[in-house]
Amino acid sequence: MGEFNFYDIYIPTLLLQAILAYVLYRVLGPVWQFLIASGWVILPSLFNLCVYIMLVMLVHGIFLFFGI
């Protein structure tokens, strides 16, 4: 993986990816809440966890594609 050096503080790349995925999750949250509220999702907490993991994988793939 790697890390970023920010004024002699090493920040893991996966931490930045997880934070970016969380921001995306919060921005797209109303879409998930609409699906949950309308009855399309049976287990909301498991669904939310899976969506977040997919977003982390998506952000990680983008980081790998661009070589960051």
Rank of each mutant, 00 (worst) to 15 (best):
H60D: 03
F4V: 03
V41M: 11
I9K: 04
M1G: 06
F63V: 01
F6A: 08
V41K: 07
E3R: 10
I9S: 06
Y7H: 06
M1C: 07
L49K: 14
L35Y: 11
Q17P: 00
Y7M: 10
G29W: 04
P12I: 08
G39E: 05
C50D: 07
R26V: 09
L58H: 03
W40F: 15
C50Q: 09
Y7R: 08
P44E: 12
L64A: 14
G2H: 01
F66Q: 11
N5M: 04
F47T: 10
V27Q: 09
S45W: 05
C50I: 15
I68W: 00
F34W: 13
M54T: 13
Y52W: 12
Y10E: 14
F4E: 04
Y10N: 14
Q17A: 04
A37T: 08
G67S: 04
L46N: 09
L46V: 11
L35I: 05
L46D: 06
V41L: 12
L64M: 15
H60L: 08
M54V: 15
E3D: 13
N5G: 04
I19M: 07
C50M: 15
P12E: 15
N5P: 05
L16I: 00
V56R: 02
G61W: 00
M1D: 14
V41T: 10
Y52A: 13
L28G: 03
Y25L: 13
I11K: 01
Y22I: 15
L24D: 00
Q17D: 03
S38Y: 08
R26H: 06
Y52N: 13
L16K: 00
G67T: 02
I68D: 01
